[in-house]
Computed example of a mutant assay.
Amino acid sequence: MKKKVKAIHTGIYDPIADLKTWRAMPTQDINNLDPFLFLNHHGPQKYGPDNNGLPFGPHPHRGFETLTFVLQGDITHKDSVSGESVINAGGIQWMTAGSGLIHAEVSSDEFKKEGGMEEVIQLWLNLPSKLKMTEPNYLGLQKDKIPAVKTEDGLGTVHLVSGHYNGEKGPVESLTGLFTSTINLSEKGEFQIELPDDNQVLLYVINGNIDIDGHQGQTHQLIELSLEGNELSFFANEDSQLIFCFGKPFNEPIFAHGPFVMNTAEEINQAIDDFQSGKLGTMNI
Rank of each mutant, 00 (worst) to 15 (best):
K3Y: 15
K3R: 10
H9Q: 10
T10A: 06
T10P: 03
D18G: 12
D18T: 13
D18S: 13
K20C: 02
W22S: 11
M25N: 07
D29H: 09
I30E: 05
F36W: 02
L37I: 11
H41V: 06
Y47L: 06
P49D: 01
H59W: 13
G63F: 09
G63D: 08
Q72E: 15
Q72I: 00
G73C: 03
S80C: 04
S85Y: 10
G91P: 10
Q93L: 15
T96Q: 02
T96S: 09
A97K: 02
L101Y: 02
A104P: 09
E105G: 09
F111L: 13
F111K: 09
K113R: 15
G116K: 05
E119L: 05
I121K: 01
I121C: 10
I121T: 03
K132I: 09
E135P: 00
N137Q: 14
Q142W: 00
I146N: 03
V158R: 05
L160V: 05
V161A: 11
S162H: 11
G167R: 01
L178R: 11
I183P: 06
N184Q: 07
K188M: 10
E190A: 12
E194W: 04
P196E: 02
D197L: 14
N199H: 15
Q200K: 11
Q200F: 00
L203H: 05
V205Y: 01
G208S: 04
G208E: 03
D213R: 14
H215V: 01
L222A: 08
S226V: 13
E228N: 06
N230A: 08
E231H: 14
L232R: 13
L242K: 13
F246K: 04
P249Y: 08
P249D: 05
P253R: 14
A256V: 08
A256N: 13
V261Q: 04
M262R: 03
E266K: 14
E267N: 07
Q270P: 02
F275I: 00
T282R: 14
N284Q: 15
